[in-house]
Amino acid sequence: MELYKNTIFGFYREGDSLIHKIDPRIKIILLIVIIIFISFIRTFSGIVFIGLFLLLIIKLSNSSFFYILKGLKPVLPIILLILIFQIIFYIGEPGKILFQWNFIKISVLGIKVSCFMMLKAILIYFISSIFFLTTEMISFTDAMERLILPLQKIKFPSHEIVMVGVIAFRFVPTLVEELERLMKAQIARGADLDRGNLIVRTIKLSGLLIPLFISAYQRAEDLVLAMESRCYRGGEGRTRRIAKKLTILDFTSFIFTVLFFSLTFLTIRYFRLL
């Protein structure tokens, strides 16, 4: 019965590796670039290339492959469910059909495409896990703000949007902690939250939602007061305590990654592997 202290995804891990040192702005751009690349890949050899690249990054960031893999465990049932639905309801050129019953058709192509999608999703999970393991939340949001700051010129409330994001992220662990407290209090008074099948447990969990919402609202109110009493008035005119400058490492890593992916892309295309 421990939720809070066993949550993995999105946890920054302190470190001193190359990946930690790259400027978060560059890291965000690279993350987006890599995710775009991954979604363009259409062959297994492409997956292998990107997989190797990710292993290199994991090595460079001093994280453990198995540790990140473990973070997948809670979402595994959902991934498998999506995979099964995809295979069953695949609509496309119906190559060779293995099994057919009413509207359910299982084709070789369907299986291939679905497995492919799943592998891509896992790759994206890996790269974003590495990103969050090596990037502090605060520098991430700071970088986000700076990246979308130019949009302020067209009256886009970039500071405010980032602030809302920061607060949402910041309060995920707090709410999980709160939920855990509520669950424990109910268990202590004989509720069977930790037993029963999935449906029974879901119904019982719904009894936690109202108290959880109430406490979230109370927290929001406290937060507003705390921010106002420290004279918060939005983004205009705010300066930064630490103004980051890009270093050689940032440029190198940027160029290296973009080159790697472009070359991979071109090689695969050239040899008609794509």
């Binding site: 407290r181 209090a185 109910q186 268990i187 202590a188 009894g207 936690l208 406490s215």
Partner: peptide, 30 residues
């Protein structure tokens, strides 16, 4: 858990029904 009663640090987290009677009844019903 009936034998070993536990009062948590924050009383508000131990109360989750609307009224006093409902809340006390929570354990009894369980």
């Amino acid at each position: 858990r009936r034998k070993v009663a536990m009062l948590f640090q924050h009383p508000d987290s131990q109360l989750f029904k609307e009224t006093v009677a409902d809340d006390i009844a929570f354990g009894l019903k369980n």
